[in-house]
């Protein structure tokens, strides 16, 4: 009994110490919060995978941080662990009532936003990469197939075996649009190119992705594109293991494996999010569906940070292609079944 009392006393002491620090920390925080007159308050529901995915979430987050630095907004963010938590978080932010805009990153938040937006018609939402048609929701979607087409054109030129691969996250239209663009680009540039396709079935399973990439390399592919979010990191380790080439996606991933990643397809979520927040701050935010592509600089490619020199002639060809797309001369297919037609039309 005495022992227990002694232990409790000890605990109390330690605790009183920590509480002491705690109060100080709380005060610090309050000072932080003295940027009370923020120009706007933003709530962010990140996609599954959360920060540190070096991809989707990190890229979106960069836009928010930029908005904080340049526009003086304040924000809170959450990292849901499962699909089912989206609704809860959007509901929470909405119930709170003090957020000028709630941003949801990822198409899989569409249902949650749709439901919650209906219940809180005064609340503004921004959905990235998905569509909700509601008077208080702005939806930003990307013409990923456009950048995929450019990437495909790189791959089609770089390959020596005339076999290129792509590891997709899931067999869903969004990823398939990407795959279609990639196929179109590769075959457009190199009519002998063959494209291997496989899907991980998960966004956070690099091991499976790695297995798939290895099997593609074993089948003769010498360059593989990852289109699998967090799982995609597995493709890079496969490339390192097999000493083959890989292509990054979503953000510039070249630095992750500079000796193997030749190019990355990038989305500029940061640009899109920053623009939207700016509109909120400026007071001219609108709801609606925005379909953004090369023209709006919402998608692009990145060669920086890679140690592999891309021959200038390849780049020139890609730029040529890009110009045609922006000019509307070429309409890139966003369904796999339309790729063949595209190729025959544009021989």
């Amino acid at each position: 009994m005495k022992k227990i009392v002694a232990c409790l006393l000890c605990l109390m002491m330690v605790l009183s110490l920590t509480v002491g620090c705690g109060q100080k920390a709380a005060q610090d925080n309050a000072e932080d919060g003295n940027a009370e007159e923020a120009t706007a308050k933003i709530g962010v529901v990140l996609g599954i995978g959360g920060l540190g995915d070096k991809s989707f979430n990190d890229n979106g987050y960069a836009g928010i941080v930029r908005a904080k630095d340049e526009l003086g907004i304040a924000f809170d963010y959450v990292e849901p662990k499962d699909l089912a938590e989206f609704e809860t978080y959007h509901r929470e932010f909405s119930q709170d009532g003090q957020y000028d805009l709630i941003i949801g990153l990822g198409f899989d938040q569409a249902d949650a936003i749709k439901k919650v937006a209906q219940e809180f018609p005064e609340q503004k939402f921004l959905l990235i990469d998905g569509v909700v048609e509601a008077p208080n929701v702005a939806s930003a979607i990307f013409k990923d197939y456009e950048k995929a087409c450019l990437i495909g054109a790189f791959a089609g030129q770089v390959t020596k075996t005339n076999k290129v691969g792509v590891v997709g996250g899931m067999d869903i239209p969004l990823i398939n649009a990407f795959v279609a663009g990639y196929q179109a680009g590769a075959k457009y540039i190199n009519s002998d190119a063959e494209v291997l396709v496989n899907y991980v079935g998960a966004w956070k399973d690099p091991n499976t992705a790695k297995e798939m990439a290895i099997s593609m390399y074993d089948k003769g592919a010498d360059i593989v594109l990852q289109a699998a979010g967090g799982s995609g990191l597995g493709v890079f380790s496969a490339a390192e293991e097999k000493d083959k080439y890989a292509i990054g996606a979503d953000v510039n991933q070249n630095a992750l494996s500079p000796d193997h990643i030749v190019v990355s397809a990038v989305r500029r979520l940061d640009n899109v999010i920053y623009d939207q927040i700016k509109k909120v701050v400026d007071g001219n935010w609108e709801s609606g569906v925005f379909n953004l592509g090369l023209k709006e600089e919402a998608v692009s490619y990145a060669l920086e940070d890679s140690n592999i020199e891309m021959p200038q002639e390849y780049i020139d060809k890609v730029e040529e292609l890009k110009a045609k797309i922006i000019a509307g001369e070429l309409v890139i297919p966003n369904k796999i079944e339309d790729v063949d037609k595209f190729l025959t039309d544009n021989k």
Binding site: V19, C21, G22, K24, A25, A26, N29
Partner: peptide, 8 residues
Amino acid sequence: YSPWEAYV
């Protein structure tokens, strides 16, 4: 972190 803040 501050446990006080956490628990509050």
